[in-house]
């Protein structure tokens, strides 16, 4: 099974609009999922330039983009991916 890749945008806009909270994910994810999920804090993913800062912070779970991301939203998306992968 392929690993789920989570990218947390640590660009200026995402950080200011709330990605600071999302840094917790770099601890939570390895603890919860072990090596099934890889989490990286990324430089600007550039979603803020096309959309608006109002939808920041952004997180990518594989190729899905999560806007106004929260720790809970990201974990839910990961659970969804892992479940689909098993079926």
């Amino acid at each position: 099974m392929n690993k789920v890749i989570v990218k947390i945008c640590m660009g200026t806009t995402c950080f200011v609009m709330g990605a600071s909270e999302l840094q917790e994910l770099t601890d939570i994810i390895p603890e919860k999922y072990g090596d099934k999920v890889e989490v990286v804090a990324s430089t600007c993913l550039d979603f803020c330039s096309s959309n608006e800062e109002s939808k920041a912070p952004y997180v990518m779970v594989d190729y899905d983009v999560i806007s106004k991301a929260t720790v809970e939203k990201v974990l839910e998306a990961i659970d969804g991916k892992l479940k689909n992968g098993q079926e």
Binding site: T12, F15, V16
Partner: peptide
């Protein structure tokens, strides 16, 4: 700090780079 952060966003400054 919120105002400073907003200033960087408005100026489109990518801090980490």
């Amino acid at each position: 700090y919120e105002e400073l952060g907003a200033l960087f966003v408005a100026h489109k400054i990518e801090l980490s780079e």
